[in-house]
Amino acid sequence: MRKKHDLPQKTCMHCGQPFTWRKKWEKVWDAVKYCSDRCRNERKRCGSAP
């Protein structure tokens, strides 16, 4: 078992906060860009506004 501080981290493209690898992201870790659904949805809103 790995300890939490040994897991890989990324920085969220929307909020800039670091987030840690999760088991549910195991197969798609390279494609994960946002720390949460909220950040992903906010990014879409900001990008579509004029």
Rank of each mutant, 00 (worst) to 15 (best):
R45I: 08
T11G: 08
K4R: 12
A31Q: 15
W25I: 04
V28M: 13
K4M: 05
S48F: 12
K10C: 04
R38F: 10
R43M: 06
K27R: 11
R22C: 01
A31I: 15
H14F: 07
Q9Y: 04
D30C: 03
W25E: 02
R43D: 05
K3P: 01
M13R: 15
L7G: 09
S48E: 13
R38L: 07
P18G: 04
T20I: 12
V32D: 05
T11W: 09
C15Y: 02
Q17I: 14
D30N: 14
K27M: 07
G47H: 15
T11V: 14
D30Q: 06
G47P: 00
G47I: 12
S36D: 03
R40T: 03
D37F: 12
R43G: 01
S48T: 14
Y34F: 15
Q9N: 05
K44F: 04
T11I: 14
M13L: 13
Y34V: 06
Q9R: 08
K33D: 14
P18T: 03
R45N: 14
R22M: 04
D37I: 08
P8H: 00
S36H: 02
R38E: 15
A49D: 03
C12K: 05
C39I: 05
C12Q: 05
A31Y: 13
R43Y: 07
T11F: 01
K24W: 08
E42P: 07
C35I: 03
K33Q: 12
H14I: 09
M13N: 09
R2T: 10
W25Y: 09
G16A: 09
M13K: 15
R2E: 13
C35G: 00
V28Y: 08
S48N: 08
H14K: 11
D6P: 00
